[in-house]
C-alpha cells in the first residue's frame, strides 16, 4: 500500500450554456494540475463542460447539518420576499 493517500478534490464544471460552475463530484489527485487532468477524464467524457474548477475538499468550510434549522430560519419566516406573496388584480395582466 502507498504510504499516504492523495488528497481529495471537489470538482466543479461549467457547462456550455453559460451557467455557473456546478459541483459534479470528487476525485483523488496528488496536485491541482493532475486533479484537473483527472477531472477531465472522469467528469467530462461527453462534452459536459468548458471549464473545470478543483478545490481541495479539506479547504471547503461547510455549514453543519444539525444546525440547518436555526441557520435557515430567518429566510423561512419571510414569505414576503417572494413575488407570489403579493396579489395583483387580474385585469392588470402580467407583472
Amino acid at each position: 500500500m502507498d504510504k499516504k493517500e492523495w488528497p481529495l478534490w471537489e470538482v466543479f464544471i461549467r457547462s456550455q450554456h453559460g451557467l455557473a460552475h456546478r459541483h459534479v463530484g470528487s476525485l483523488h489527485a496528488p496536485d491541482a494540475e493532475m486533479a484537473i487532468m483527472n477531472a477531465r477524464d472522469v467528469y467530462t467524457r461527453r462534452n459536459e463542460g468548458v471549464s473545470i474548477w478543483v478545490v481541495k475538499a479539506s479547504d471547503i468550510a461547510a455549514s453543519s447539518p444539525s444546525e440547518k434549522g436555526p441557520l435557515f430560519e430567518p429566510a423561512n419566516s419571510k414569505v414576503y420576499r417572494h413575488p407570489t406573496f403579493y396579489e395583483i388584480p387580474e385585469e392588470l395582466g402580467h407583472m
Binding site: 500500500m1 481529495l8 476525485l27 467524457r45
Partner: peptide, 26 residues
C-alpha cells in the same frame, strides 16, 4: 473507460461514509 469512471464515482460516494480509498483498494 466509462466503467473506470463509474467505479470512481462510486468509490467517492462510499468515501463520504467515512471509509478511505486506500482501505477500499486494499
Amino acid at each position: 473507460q466509462d466503467e473506470a469512471g463509474h467505479g470512481l464515482y462510486l468509490y467517492c460516494a462510499a468515501e463520504t461514509l467515512g471509509v478511505s480509498r486506500d482501505e477500499l483498494m486494499e
